[in-house]
């Protein structure tokens, strides 16, 4: 097996054009899958030495996050805390300290498990993804990207995430079976425009209720442009339960998840609205 360790994005893309290779980000999923024989890469392009991919910065109204930024780096970033609380929160509870030190946001998207912790916050925050492939650069909304199959064409590199800074307030909560090393059984990310007690645009994304994390258009419609009060919260809970019910259908986990999502929704609200979202 060939192993490449490029120093720049350009080199990485060039190698990807020559070899049928698999990109190695943090490795927490890829190395495991190689070990169990689930994946047999022909060649590996280790992105770990490309420093430009690790940057977390604010430019031109965007929070830019390099695909190789780790969950630990994001979870310790003051900038992410200030500008993208939902993402910051997701980074606190993902896996374990060891996993967070290794796993990257780009890898989280590339592997794209249904329970991927990073994706619902990015969806809620309206993130775009910059991809680089032999066809060139492409900036695509995460939402659009997640509707593609396969997610990425061969040799496509996730360059960075771009979160537009529109002054959204955001929050996140996840339900796992235990308090660490927990795979999300449900996760909810919410981002809203909030002025005094008036809710503007609302975006709600859910994890672990389908094959991939997704953004609910229905909830966005139903919850946008209203007063933030008890009624709104109850409406949100009712809505999110309906969405989960529709998404899971007859799956064994459905009866539980559609109940439990109310608590997760409430907790997600509580992460950025005082009084735990129960009283406004």
């Amino acid at each position: 097996m060939n192993y490449f360790q490029p120093q720049t994005v350009g080199q990485a893309v060039n190698i990807a054009q020559t070899f049928e290779a698999t990109f190695l980000a943090g490795g927490t999923d890829l190395v495991l899958h190689m070990q169990t024989g689930k994946i047999h890469p022909n060649a590996i392009i280790d992105l770990g030495k490309i420093s430009e991919l690790k940057e977390i910065k604010e430019t031109d109204g965007y929070l830019e996050i390099g695909s190789m930024a780790t969950f630990a780096e994001l979870g310790q970033s003051e900038l992410v805390f200030q500008k993208a609380l939902a993402l910051w929160l997701a980074c606190q509870t993902m896996g374990s300290p060891q996993i967070r030190n290794q796993a990257t946001l780009g890898g989280n998207l590339g592997n794209c498990s249904p329970a991927a912790d990073g994706l619902p916050p990015l969806l809620a925050l309206g993130a775009e993804v910059r991809l680089i492939s032999r066809e060139g650069d492409e900036v695509v909304s995460l939402e659009t990207l997640l509707s593609r199959t396969p997610l990425l064409s061969q040799g496509t590199l996730i360059r960075e995430f771009r979160i537009p800074l529109k002054g959204l307030q955001s929050g996140f909560a996840k339900l796992g079976r235990r308090k660490a090393l927990a795979i999300a059984r449900l996760s909810v990310a919410i981002a809203i425009e909030l002025e005094d007690n008036r809710v503007g645009k609302v975006r709600v994304a859910l994890g672990a209720v389908g094959k991939r994390a997704y953004l609910s258009e229905i909830l966005a419609r139903e919850l946008s442009d209203q007063e933030l009060n008890e009624v709104w919260i109850e409406k949100g809970i009712e809505g999110v339960q309906r969405v989960v019910r529709e998404a899971l259908g007859a799956r064994a986990s459905a009866p539980y998840k559609r109940e439990a999502v109310s608590g997760v929704f409430r907790e997600a609200l509580g992460t950025f609205i005082p009084e735990g979202g129960t009283k406004v």
Binding site: Q5, L24, L32, I44, G95, Q98, Q102
Partner: peptide
């Protein structure tokens, strides 16, 4: 062998990681 138990923890560049999920060439 799946990054769950932490018994294989080592510190790489000041960070703890599970060495069962790290490929040797990564630590160059």
């Amino acid at each position: 062998g799946e990054g769950e138990c932490g018994a294989c923890t080592v510190i790489i560049d000041g960070k703890t990681v599970n060495s069962c999920l790290v490929l040797a060439p990564q630590v160059d």
